[in-house]
Design a binder for these strands. Structure first.
Lengths: 207, 207
DNA sequence: CGAGTGACGATATAATTATTTAGTCACTCT
DNA sequence: AGAGTGACTAAATAATTATATCGTCACTCG
């Protein structure tokens, strides 16, 4: 059973990896980005918030975008954590799969409605293929694979199709709801649509 | 066996429905939009192309956007026609489904690469939920339903799941590749990804 | 009457200018 | 040496102005 571990130090960082100041920056960034948006927040604002000069920020991050990525990682971690929590609740593999996705979708949608400005960063991150978004997909795939393997062991799922093809295909299918970029276009048919999609996926997994 | 019939008169039209001038406008629009793009083409350009005044255009179309929709309908008709052609080639229902989607995806991708400017109109149409895009999805669903029903008759496909749920789910799944808006973000993993998605769909249809 | 238009106001787009902001570097202070 | 910064430039963003375009309407002409 994997647990969401703090993501590895993202690209774009600088200087001491473990450092109180870095955390302060990230906290200030989360607060500011969430309230005013990424675009309207200046690096100087963050500097002022933590009581240092702007130049000092750049001892810890390569660029403003690197800070954005750090925030993005936080968001996506939360989404994945919800997926993993759902996964843990499910008894059978099928149930795990269902809850994994419903956790992800619910959390993403919540992010969209409750914290639009942070969500926008995530969407931007997906659009620009930031490492944060890539990592998100990879970790989702790893979790998914875990579920599928479990289902195969317990005999719930078929075993003929190559596992990697299955995982890729399922992710592909669920992307419409877990990729922030795409979710945006499918908001109206929440929450029925993802449920239907998962149903289809589960039918495809039947032995 | 349905054949793609000319789409019903779209919204935004005016005056005589069947009229040589209307066709001239559409032809000129296709040429101009394709060469210079929707944004860079002015209604006056179209008027000049057909040798009439700008005001006359508005005897046939409500707005420039209505002309855009007409062009969009043409594009999407072509895409669906490719899908239907593929469908006709397939022997079994599964084969029809495969070719239906590969026809659609191939034609959409071709549109994207060879006629980017027209493609952009289609994407815009999907984004803004123009009737043209809605009609496209509806007609795709109708064709898909035909295939599924056939497969059920021949015993290729399972019969338990409500047909409407199946169709909706499949469309949902394939949207990543047939919706111009989404296709844009999935271009890199063509053509394998849609194939994998269809494989998944077919597994889900197994009796 | 019906095919077709010039001239016009409101709105959108483009071009220009003015202002902010990202990011660096030489530097200070402890 | 290492924590921290003011002052600076190139690039981006915002504000402003100028221009083009959409869409309508009263109108002409056959």
């Amino acid at each position: 059973m994997s647990t969401i571990e703090p993501s590895p130090p993202s690209a774009g960082q600088r200087g001491p990896v473990e450092h109180g100041i870095r955390d302060q920056i990230v906290d200030a960034a989360e607060a500011h980005f969430s309230r005013y948006g990424y675009g309207k927040t200046t690096v100087a604002d963050l500097a002022k918030a933590i009581g240092f000069s702007k130049a000092y920020i750049y001892k810890f991050f390569d660029s403003k975008q690197a800070i954005g990525q750090a925030i993005c990682v936080q968001c996506l971690d939360k989404v994945l954590a919800a997926g993993e929590a759902g996964m843990a609740e499910g008894k059978t593999a099928a149930e795990k799969l269902r809850r994994f996705f419903s956790g992800i979708v619910a959390t993403s949608a919540e992010l969209f409605f409750e914290d639009k400005l942070l969500y926008d960063i995530a969407a931007h991150s997906a659009e620009e293929r930031w490492p944060s978004a890539m990592a998100y997909m990879e970790r989702a795939e790893a979790l998914l694979k875990e579920i599928i393997l479990l289902g195969r062991e317990t005999g719930e799922f078929e075993r003929k199709t190559p596992i990697d093809e299955i995982c890729e295909a399922i992710l592909l299918v669920m992307q419409s709801f877990m990729n922030p970029l795409m979710l945006k276009h499918n908001l109206d048919d929440l929450p029925e649509a993802p449920t239907k999609a998962v149903n289809l996926v589960l039918r495809s997994l039947a032995p």
